[in-house]
Structures are given as C-alpha cells and as structure tokens.
C-alpha cells in the first residue's frame, strides 16, 4: 500500500528537490516578512497594514545556533515508543535576505558534531513521521554540499 505524502503543516513549504522552499508572507506595504506565515494582518506596529502576499524564503542560510534532543520529546511529537530513541539535531538558521532565524530539524544522519555556528545550510524536504496511510512531510536543514 502506498502512503499519501501530506505536509505536517499546511502551506509552510512547497516544491520538491532543489525547488523546495519554505513559504512565508510579505507585507505589500512595509515589506516585513513573516514565517510562520501571517495571513490576516501585518505585525509591524508602525505599518498601517497592506495585503500579505506569499513569498518563498531563501533556500540557504547560516547556522545561528544548534542543539539536539537526547531524550524522546512528549506528544504531539510522534515517535515509536517500541524503538530506542535516536537523538536528532535542531538548527536555528539565519536567512540573510529576510533577516529572520528559522528553527528546523537536520536531515537524518547529521549530528551536532557535524555542525558549527556560521556554517551554511540549505532547506530540503524531509519526513517527520509515517502512519498507516500517510507520510507526513516537513522541512529539514542540511549542511550545503552534503548529499547523503
């Protein structure tokens, strides 16, 4: 049986492979960018508020900081309690042109030992978890040049 690939959160990212991008919104009046997307009103307190248009965010950025999760997080994070817990790294990435820091998991196999603050990373599609019918997809960060 084939599982349906479904984003774990709606309208936060789009595309496949090299075309994969995080999606934010931008105020057409003041040019502030929002991620997670802001669809109702610009949050810049000095802006009267313009229409918010969807924009793809930069594909690459630099590591602001990183850490990992050595213990199993509680629900609603989904993990199989029957399998040993496999720690994964989390990276906060600074996107230069948007002047924003976005948190994400790393791709599987990358650990904190592989990371340094300031390192360039790129956003790639990944799998958050799977159930009987659905593969829940997400965004992940990967050091640039790593193809594994």
């Amino acid at each position: 049986m084939t599982r349906t690939r479904t984003p774990a959160v709606s309208d936060w990212f789009t595309g496949e492979g090299d075309g994969f991008r995080l999606l934010g919104t931008r105020c057409t009046s003041c040019a502030s960018v929002f991620f997670p997307r802001e669809d109702s009103h610009c949050r810049n307190p000095h802006c009267a508020g313009g229409a918010l248009e969807e924009v793809p965010l930069s594909r690459t950025g630099r590591i602001w900081s990183y850490t990992d999760s050595r213990y199993r997080p509680p629900s609603p994070y989904v993990s199989n309690p029957e399998l040993p817990w496999e720690p994964y790294a989390l990276i906060a990435v600074e996107l230069q042109s948007e002047r924003i820091v976005v948190l994400g998991q790393t791709v599987p196999g990358v650990t904190v030992a592989d990371l340094t603050v300031g390192m360039e990373v790129e956003v790639v599609p990944g799998v958050l978890d799977e159930d009987a019918e659905t593969t829940w997809t997400t965004w992940q960060w990967r050091p640039t040049g790593v193809t594994a």
Binding site: C30, A31, V33, N44
Partner: peptide, 10 residues
Amino acid sequence: DIATDSAVAV
C-alpha cells in the same frame, strides 16, 4: 516560537 521576527523592514 519556530522563528524570530524579520528585521528586513524595521
């Protein structure tokens, strides 16, 4: 939060 505010406009 999952991200900061953007400082691109302000």
